[in-house]
Design a protein around this nucleic acid. Structure first.
Length: 237
DNA sequence: AGTCGCTCCTGCTCGC
DNA sequence: TGCGAGCAGGAGCGAC
């Protein structure tokens, strides 16, 4: 399940591969991953140039000129696979959902076996609205232990569910929530507001540690996850 | 406000 | 060897 570290790894791999490319053509073999018709999606995206690749929470953002961006939620099995030229034989993605073809003959394929992932093209206003719904980025240097402690204090939810709620803290899923709680010696069923400042500080440290370690390892190896280069991640679990 | 149950989907494991 | 049932699981939704 791609979480923050996997999304970050994908972003870093994608950045040199697709930045500056112009999208010539879009093919959508699996339109249900879009949140709109394939016609209108293609129309928004075609002819645009990729300015940068970024991440927010578990989402990969392909920022286009004119402020639009393609927001990719990887869901459970989503992959973003760049190819310098159309792949042949075994190299072909098994479940292509969206294909972006670029001006230099290279392409980017959103491959998603179970199609829990989504691909959307958002205008600047749509994005800022969406963006505001996400909680703080745990790796943001400005995100302090006291901030986590204060937020936990207002909630009766179980700490595990609390960590999974993207509105409260961004980018954490099942695996890293379990890992961080285990490392901090906090039982997952405890009410968030029962966690004191000392424990919250420990948890803050554990969250950062598991996320950073996983990024250093290039993402986890879980089921059919592959990083942007198509190799397996090294953070086995 | 929080939790539960459901939905989306397909590959995998298990039992027979 | 084959087959069906059950399960996994991020996120959004309606119901309570």
């Amino acid at each position: 399940m791609p979480e923050l570290p996997e999304a970050e790894t994908i972003v870093r791999g994608l950045r040199p591969a697709i930045t500056g490319r112009r999208i010539e053509r879009v093919e959508v073999p699996k339109p249900d991953v879009l949140r709109e018709g394939r016609r209108s999606f293609s129309a928004k995206v075609r002819g645009r140039t990729i300015g940068s690749v970024e991440r927010r929470a578990k989402n990969v953002l392909i920022v286009l000129d004119r402020g639009r961006r393609i927001a990719v939620n990887l869901g459970m099995t989503g992959q973003l696979l760049p190819f310098p030229r159309p792949p042949r034989g075994r190299r072909r993605p098994t479940h292509p959902a969206v294909r972006f073809r670029f001006d230099d003959g290279s392409l980017l394929v959103f491959n998603d076996t179970r199609r829990f992932g989504t691909v959307e093209c958002l205008d600047p206003e749509e994005w800022s609205e969406r963006e505001a719904r996400f909680g703080p980025e745990p790796l943001d240097p400005a995100y302090a232990p006291s901030q986590l402690a204060a937020a936990l204090g207002t909630s009766r939810a179980r700490i595990r569910s609390w960590l999974l709620d993207q509105r409260r803290i961004a980018g954490i899923g099942n695996i890293y929530a379990a890992e961080a709680l285990f490392l901090s010696g906090i039982h997952p069923e405890r009410p968030a507001r029962s966690i004191d400042l000392e424990e919250a500080t420990r948890l803050h440290g554990s969250i950062r540690m598991v996320l950073e370690d996983a990024i250093d390892e290039g993402g986890t190896t879980i089921r059919d996850y592959r990083n942007a280069i198509g190799g397996e991640g090294g953070y086995a679990r």
